[in-house]
């Protein structure tokens, strides 16, 4: 909106910018109000405003920035991927599996989506690409039973890591959520500390419903961290700021495409800049 005085109108425009990134009305107005505290009625250029906004957002997101190395830690480390339908769980596992192979970790992928058509085949292709075995049962099999066998196998064969895919489920479906709770319970039978990670996969196009997703999956499965996918599209994924305000959950990775290499560690600074429309060239 060009260089101008940071008056009420300008603040409203800023708030609109944030709302249009899915940050939600409340958090957007909180952030602009913060900005106003120090800059109200001062002349400020467009870039200065964006930089100031980005730094407000970065400050909120910085504590959530937490890279994770799944190849490290307890053995076998059991990592569960959960989330609503189509958010990118299977693809994210595929990407992580490809990374792990490079690191030389001994991993096992588990096709815990025994419901969706060709979900098993999809994970199997990713396993083949990464050179990591996939444990599966026919469609319709009990997912919890499969996960139990997978952990047993990993313990027996002294594997580093078990990555478990699960079926997509909407958080308001009690029956499907209790199936997920059962998967979690079963892993604990073999290792009281398992699952060591429960990764909630959020789609960047999602709006305010992300908040209810985080709440419900936390409650049912004890989410330990977040991955946000599809940030390569036009969606900015601003709801993550609202999530960060409400939940002290680390954000591990962002998905920026469909290929194995399209997974990046979450960076609060890069995320904040992209959100307010500060181009890549300005960030380096």
């Amino acid at each position: 909106f060009g260089g101008r005085r940071l008056d009420d109108d300008a603040l409203e425009d800023l708030e609109d910018l944030l709302i249009m990134s899915d940050m939600g009305a409340k958090v957007s107005s909180k952030i602009t109000a913060n900005l106003a505290k120090t800059r109200f009625d001062k002349d400020i250029s467009d870039d200065e405003i964006r930089i100031a906004l980005a730094s407000e957002i970065e400050a909120i997101m910085k504590p959530r920035e937490q890279v994770v190395d799944f190849a490290d830690g307890p053995r076998p480390r059991v990592v569960l991927f959960v989330g609503v339908n189509g958010s990118g769980k299977t693809t994210t596992i595929g990407k992580i599996a490809s990374k792990l192979k490079e690191q030389g970790a001994k991993a096992l992928l588990v096709a815990g989506d025994t419901f969706r058509a060709a979900a098993i085949e999809q994970l199997t292709v990713w396993g083949e690409r990464a050179g990591i075995p996939v444990l599966s049962k026919p469609t319709g099999a009990d997912a919890a039973g499969l996960v139990y066998e997978a952990i047993e196998k990993a313990q027996r064969e002294d594997l580093d890591l078990v990555l478990v895919d699960t079926a997509g489920r909407l958080q308001n479906k009690a029956e499907l959520m209790s199936e997920l709770a059962k998967i979690v319970r079963v892993t604990r039978k073999l290792d009281p500390d398992a699952p060591h990670d429960v990764i909630l996969v959020l789609d960047a196009t999602v709006g305010q419903n992300a908040l209810s997703q985080v709440e419900a999956f936390r409650h049912t499965a004890g989410v330990s961290g977040i991955v946000m996918t599809k940030l390569d599209g036009t969606a900015k994924g601003g709801v993550l700021v609202a999530v960060a305000e409400a939940h002290a959950l680390p954000i591990h990775f962002v998905g920026v495409g469909e290929k194995a290499e399209d997974l990046q560690p979450f960076s609060a600074s890069a995320y904040a800049k992209a959100l307010v429309g500060l181009g890549q060239e300005e960030t380096v």
Binding site: V84, N85, T205, G207, N209, A235, V239
Partner: peptide
């Protein structure tokens, strides 16, 4: 969320769209 307008506009520009389908209405969104 808010991206709905951008996505709809861009697909509409490039394809001879005749209609929309909204999925996952069984959610609590």
């Amino acid at each position: 969320g808010q991206d709905a307008v951008e996505t709809a506009r861009r697909f509409h520009e490039r394809l001879p769209l005749t209609g929309l389908v909204l999925t996952r209405m069984d959610g609590d969104g």
